[in-house]
Amino acid sequence: MAQGQEEQPRDERNPGVPLDLGWLREVHVNRSAVERRAATLPARRTVKREWQAAWLLRAITCLDLTTLAGDDTPGTVRRLCAKARHPVRSELLEALGVPEERIQVAAVCVYHNLVSVAVAALRGTQIPVAAVSTGFPAGQIALEQKLAEIAASVRAGAREIDVVISRAHVLTGNWQALYDEVRAFRMACGEAHMKTILATHELATLRNVGMASLVCMMAGADFIKTSTGKEAVNATLPVGLVMTRAIRDYYERTGYRVGLKPAGGIRSAKTALDWLILMKEELGDEWLNSRLFRIGASGLLSDIERQLSYFVTGHYAAAHYNPLV
């Protein structure tokens, strides 16, 4: 943080800052060093037994429980929302000594046309509905359509909007266009929190990932998100390392904290722990909460519940004891 600058209140949203192209030119990424660091993270810090159970419960509270399939129905979403309300079996939480009301997922993420269904199913809880928007997953529609889609989801009750950036702006180095686009998204979101999906596998280089992360934060993103979940390669620790360091750089220069959301391919409890370790190592305990860290996943919760069952009983529960929907 700049000398003499006062730290912002921890609950203050990132308002964004003017685009700084000089700052972007300072971004350099050593791929081999990033990959070495990412490979050592899981080995440097391990959690076992009751500590592992505690970390897995924390992972649940940071989970954006997601369904983004072509065969989604209102019934699918209602079942997902029921699981969001009670993500872990009562007898497991009782054995762990954790009050059931303390364990809920961070959000439920759906397509726009199912937002109203999810909002109704979650009524009476504090669980927000997140809507994927702006032509998800490719983002290949006109800006006017993207803004209209955001506005429609907000009107339907979405309190969080996951937007996709135009990858072409990154690949052609048109940072002003990317900034203007994301800034317009932020204005359309209003009070709804905005997560900007970088689709990192489609950005060609880790340096592009770092620069795109900074531009989205400058434009007012509340979270930067790795992937759509529809790419050939989705959330990876090397990409996460580049993005967390961009978040740290942004915080040190502006005083505003921005969250990270890895998404896509995170299906095992062990992988979720790896991401929690990354956040703790690179950003510290302040980021280990749903306000600044989310995991976008659909099948992850089943494996976490399976691991908690093993901790409590000494054996893995059959699959039908841990249904997701």
Rank of each mutant, 00 (worst) to 15 (best):
E281L: 10
H320C: 08
A152V: 08
K195G: 01
T46I: 11
R207I: 09
G16P: 08
P42K: 13
Q176I: 12
F311A: 06
V27K: 05
L308V: 06
E6A: 15
E181V: 10
S32G: 06
G220V: 06
H193W: 12
A184Q: 12
L57G: 05
G259Q: 04
P323T: 07
Q3R: 13
R207K: 14
E149W: 01
V110L: 04
L63Q: 00
H320M: 07
L171C: 13
R183K: 14
A2K: 15
R10V: 14
R291E: 15
Y179N: 05
M1V: 15
E12D: 09
G255L: 07
G75V: 04
V119N: 01
I304D: 04
R245D: 12
N14W: 07
N30R: 13
M218V: 06
T73C: 09
F293M: 05
R248E: 11
A152D: 14
K230C: 02
W175G: 05
P99E: 11
L324K: 07
L292P: 05
T205M: 11
Q176V: 14
A138W: 06
D222R: 05
V239G: 04
L283I: 03
Q52I: 04
K146Q: 13
A318R: 11
P99F: 10
R78P: 00
T40K: 09
H28N: 10
A177D: 15
I150G: 01
G190V: 06
L68S: 09
D64V: 03
R44M: 12
G157D: 00
T271S: 14
P262R: 08
V325C: 08
G16C: 11
Y179K: 06
E281N: 07
T125W: 00
A177Q: 15
L122A: 10
N174L: 09
A269Y: 01
K270N: 08
V98W: 07
E35W: 08
M211F: 04
L19H: 08
G75M: 04
G173W: 12
R245A: 06
A219W: 02
R10D: 14
E100F: 02
R13S: 13
S90H: 10
P323V: 08
F223K: 04
V163Y: 00
L276A: 03
L198T: 06
A2W: 12
A54G: 10
A269V: 05
V163A: 15
V119C: 01
V17A: 12
L57W: 07
L241G: 01
E50D: 13
M187C: 07
D249K: 08
R45E: 14
T125G: 00
M194Y: 06
G157S: 08
D72G: 02
L57E: 06
I60G: 00
L198M: 13
R58K: 15
D303G: 03
L143P: 03
T172Y: 14
G265Y: 09
I304G: 07
